[in-house]
């Protein structure tokens, strides 16, 4: 065929119309959600796109694996895991931040940079559906990144014959905390990434906001608490960095062991942390919707 006719000429195969089902908004949004989730791990794209997320997933699980092995090897001496489940997120925050910094721009900056957004909005997909699908997709990816090592540790604990009831409760609470981490991280990351079409800059900006805020706030908390002996003020300072914020949230709400320098001060502090956490999530949602309302070309 291609020898008889020049390439690019239309073949007269006959056009077939489409009479099949046309799924509504809900199904389309769900398809976009799955697409975003897969894209966060490089699935459905080129091989090179998979390298970094999979590498990060591996690095994320490695310490958990080591901990599980240690627990089993020394189960005669240890009666619990060397590192509590709920502290894993803060300990591994570097990996989480890099993953977020690499994949949040992947989720939104690409569409802005290549100007694919009008193609989405000229379809039966509302703007808020787009935002929801991207937000949920990235949050799920972050949650999976946190849940995998927790499950590895849990299996290790069960194999080491630690009390199953206690381990199950602990891991369940840690997973709830992981949900909070995932949503807050994804929200802040997406807001920052959606402000720029340049992927490199989005990556740097996300890292800066998370890493610098954590370094600055922890250092400040350390100084205020131990030099000034003011644990209350140090506790309040934790509101100003996403990592310490969610850590404080899970410490107070889920009774997790704190990894921060200073936990939320008292009940007032705890309530404050909860309010700010939900406030941050709400603000991210609103800002993302606002940003995409203005896109028209």
């Amino acid at each position: 065929m291609s020898q008889q006719q020049p390439a690019g000429v239309i073949h007269d195969i006959g056009y077939r119309g489409y009479d099949g089902p046309r799924l509504g908004r809900g199904a389309v949004a769900r398809a976009l959600y799955v697409h975003s989730l897969r894209g966060a791990f490089g699935l459905g794209r080129s091989a090179r796109a998979k390298v970094l997320p999979m590498l990060l997933l591996g690095v994320m699980c490695l310490p958990a694996f080591i901990i599980a092995v240690i627990a089993n090897a020394t189960s005669s001496v240890l009666t619990e895991l060397p590192l509590p489940y709920s502290r894993y997120a803060v300990v591994a925050q570097g990996i989480l931040t890099i993953f977020l910094a690499a994949q949040a721009p992947q989720a939104v900056s690409r569409d802005l940079r290549f100007k694919t957004v009008p193609l989405y909005f000229s379809r039966p997909l509302e703007r808020s559906d787009y935002v929801l699908a991207k937000f949920a997709g990235l949050s799920t990816a972050m949650f999976l990144l946190l849940a995998a090592p927790l499950l590895i540790m849990y299996i290790g604990a069960l194999l080491a014959e630690f009390p199953a009831g206690r381990e199950t409760t602990d891991v369940a609470l840690a997973l709830v905390g992981a949900v909070a981490f995932a949503i807050v991280f994804a929200g802040v990351g997406l807001v920052i990434a959606s402000l720029t079409a340049r992927r490199g800059f989005g990556v740097a900006a996300i890292i800066t906001v998370f890493a610098l805020s954590f370094a600055a706030i922890s250092s400040l908390q350390g100084i205020i608490r131990y030099v000034e002996d003011d644990a209350t003020l140090a506790g309040w300072l934790g509101l100003f960095s996403p990592i310490t914020l969610v850590d404080g949230f899970q410490t107070w709400v889920l009774d997790a062991s704190s990894s921060a320098v200073a936990p939320p001060p008292g009940s007032a502090g705890g309530v404050g942390y909860v309010l700010v956490t939900f406030g941050v999530i709400g603000a991210c949602w609103a800002l993302l919707n606002l940003r995409y309302r203005k896109v028209s070309s």
């Binding site: 489409y18 099949g20 089902p21 046309r22 799924l23 509504g24 199904a27 389309v28 398809a31 976009l32 697409h35 459905g44 794209r45 080129s46 796109a49 690409r110 569409d111 290549f114 100007k115 694919t116 009008p118 193609l119 989405y120 379809r123 039966p124 997909l125 070309s297």
Partner: peptide, 27 residues
């Protein structure tokens, strides 16, 4: 659209399939 709107790192098939799903077609 008039302007460039195609991502550079996916194939035409993948892109059009994705857009078809965004229009409501089953997989």
């Amino acid at each position: 659209p008039e302007h460039d709107c195609l991502p550079g790192d996916v194939s035409a098939t993948e892109f059009v399939v994705h857009m078809a799903r965004m229009s409501g077609l089953p997989a």
